[in-house]
Design a protein around this nucleic acid. Structure first.
Length: 596
RNA sequence: GCCGGGGUAGCUCAGAGGCAGAGCAACUGAUUCGUAAUCAGUAGGUCGCGGGUUCAACUCCCGCCCCCGGCUCCA
């Protein structure tokens, strides 16, 4: 929603209004006030555009020197004065030609450029005090309406979002209807910082990055446990659903990419190397090779749907400036699958993929939302194919009882798709899973066929789908979602046994052995430290269960159970082992053992 | 890739043209402890990499690499 507003601004189609909702209007007005403050402090600065965006607003300025944090404070100060003065926002109209003259006179070349791109005869302007801006509005009645705002950061941004254009300085800010909303938002920012997977990854010894391999994590033993548990779950479910797991080469001859079309459209993103005078590439996608699995045998209509899955290691040469922890990597482990089926089977297949997606995310307490992207103008294939395909996706969504957003024109040229976004524990949105119906690309390019009941050769359709998207990004997301406090089944260390003193070490060892015999990832913390220290350490490491043992427990055959922060008292050892095992097997989302 | 900010011990960070620093972690010892940090000691460094200026460079200059915040792109 907010993206669309921003996009409209960037495209400069002449629609410079923000949404007429109170919050978007307020943010838009706040951006004007910020521009006014900047012009007051630096009269030579030229203003570009300043829309309302999700959670706030920005304004772009042309200025010789960047804004410093101190500058932001000064601007905020002037903004408060403007707000206090409670100046009205006044709308006026002007012919386009007059407006061009007006802004040219003031040296506002960016505004002139915007105006030159507008084909309306008249344009509207908004003025508060000594600041006037080209704008469709709407705006707050006066600057006094701005109660709760804060400037957040400044950075470079290209004029019109195009890297060939000059770089402007953008200041980001946030504004809310009430002080409470602002505080809530600032809390969320702070919370996000605390949950940052890069920080938790280091603290919990999950993974590491080194200069020698930018964009590719070194999985440490703890992180690898999570990776393996995800794979294990993934395999269990896919085996049960009739997927066939495969593995295809990582290093592949250029010929394949020429055949698939990647060489032409994607080679900038591919890592290439020469081997005995042949060009090879690390695969950036699994799809082309998946067709080799399909073509291994002559397929009959009886073989379809053929569900070919692969946890594939991909490499994409992402631009260096875009890499970010596990969220944006160059080495991607994708949980891919390609379903080859008859066109009339596609709807059911997509329907089961959607059901699968929901099953997966439920396990992690992630709330999915669905977006259906339909045909773009430059589509490949016939109108009838697209009608059937899009209709199938609508029906599959409906069959699952899912509400969804429509994104007309957003599909790839070879077929419509459903993108699945999730919302995490602190309300952030992520796109991970995708279901893409492929009417023509793989089937046509790779000449896929099956023999139908009547003995004729027909062309199947392909469904590309991923549920985790990439293991890297998914682990990054759930690390932040759970703030490192993973459900027991995913926790690298599921239980720690803590003897009160070395006098009880024998019993602690026995408890430890019992846990390990039950395949529970348990550690014995018999370090020469006080009990409080070891409790704190286990807590900081986000270990789900602590089993404290001393005199009383040894005598009674019990353990004192602590579930992260909560003391659950003495429990019989047998029961704790059994219940812990059951919680792990059930992949429970919460810590249930010993809860009364 | 572009703009801005960074890179000093495993981690968090201070310092700065003239002997490289702290806290935590690690290690050793004392202590044997009942639910978020016991005390003492020891060790730990190519100050991102390469070049230059200088009697002397972690510090100044140039180039490169990597990280962070954005832009662009994206799973």
């Amino acid at each position: 929603m907010a993206d669309a507003v921003e996009e409209r601004h960037l495209k400069l189609t002449g629609e410079f209004d923000c949404d007429a909702t109170p919050l978007a209007t307020l943010r838009h007005s706040t951006s004007h006030v910020m521009a006014q403050a900047v012009k007051r402090l630096w009269p030579d600065v030229k203003v570009a555009i300043g829309p309302s965006i999700e959670d706030g607003f920005y304004y772009d300025f042309a200025k010789a020197e960047p804004f410093t944090p101190h500058d932001l404070e000064k601007i905020e100060g002037v903004m408060r004065e403007i707000v206090k003065a409670n100046t009205p926002f006044e709308r006026s109209e002007m012919s386009r030609a007059d407006a061009i003259a007006h802004f040219r006179e003031r040296g506002e070349t960016y505004k002139v450029e915007i105006l030159e791109g507008i084909d309306a005869p008249t344009v509207s302007l908004y003025k508060q005090g000594d600041f006037i801006d080209l704008c469709r509005g709407p705006h707050a009645a006066s600057t006094g309406a701005i109660k709760a705002f804060k400037l957040l950061s400044s950075s470079g941004a290209y004029w019109r979002g195009d890297e060939k254009n000059p770089m402007l300085w953008r200041i980001y800010g946030t504004a809310w209807l009430t002080k409470e909303d602002l505080d809530k938002y600032l809390w969320r920012l702070d919370e996000a910082k605390k949950r940052d997977h890069r920080k938790l990854g280091r603290e919990l010894d999950l993974f590491d990055f080194h200069d020698v391999a930018p964009g590719a994590p070194f999985w440490l033993p703890n992180g690898m446990v999570i990776f393996r548990e995800l794979e294990r779950y993934w395999r269990e479910v896919h085996d049960a659903q009739g997927y066939l797991e495969t593995s295809t080469p990582i290093l592949v001859n250029k010929k394949l990419w020429e055949e698939s079309g990647h060489w032409e459209y994607y080679s900038d993103n591919m890592f290439k190397l020469e081997v005995e005078e042949q060009i090879f590439s690390l695969k950036p996608m699994n799809c082309p090779e998946s067709t080799y699995i399909y073509r291994h045998a002559l397929r009959s209509y009886r073989d379809l749907p053929l569900r070919v899955a692969e946890i594939g290691r991909l490499h994409r040469n992402e631009r260096s400036g875009t890499l970010t922890g596990l969220f944006r990597v160059r080495q991607i482990t994708m949980d891919d699958a390609h379903i080859y089926c008859r066109p009339d089977q596609a709807q059911d297949e997509i329907s089961s993929v959607l059901a699968l997606v929901r099953e997966f995310y439920k396990l992690f307490n992630l709330e999915p939302t669905f977006k259906l992207a339909t045909r773009p103008p430059d589509m490949l294939g016939t109108k009838e194919q697209w009608d059937n395909a899009e209709n199938g996706l609508h029906e599959a969504l409906k069959a699952n009882g899912l509400a969804y957003e429509l994104k007309p024109g957003d599909a790839a040229f070879y077929g419509p798709k459903i993108d699945i976004h999730i919302e995490d524990a602190i309300g952030r949105n992520w796109q991970i899973a995708t279901v893409q119906l492929d009417l023509t690309m793989l089937p046509e390019r790779f000449q896929l066929e099956y023999v139908d009941a009547d003995g004729t050769r027909k062309r199947p359709v392909a469904i590309h789908r991923a549920i985790f998207g990439s293991f890297e990004r998914f682990i990054g997301i759930i690390t932040e979602h759970f703030a490192g406090a993973f459900p027991t089944w995913l926790a690298p260390v599921q239980a720690r046994v803590i003897p009160i003193s070395e006098k009880f070490i024998d019993y602690a060892r026995e408890v430890h052995q019992r846990l390990r015999a039950a395949r529970i990832r348990a550690e014995l913390d018999d370090r020469n430290e006080k009990l409080g220290y070891r409790i704190r350490d286990a807590q900081v490491r986000k270990v789900p269960y602590m089993l404290v043992v001393g005199e009383r427990e040894r005598e009674a055959g019990t353990v004192s159970l602590r579930a992260r922060t909560e003391d659950r008292g003495a429990q019989p050892l047998d029961r704790v082992v059994a219940d812990l095992g059951a919680e792990i097997t059930a992949r429970a989302a919460t810590l249930t053992v010993g809860r009364s």
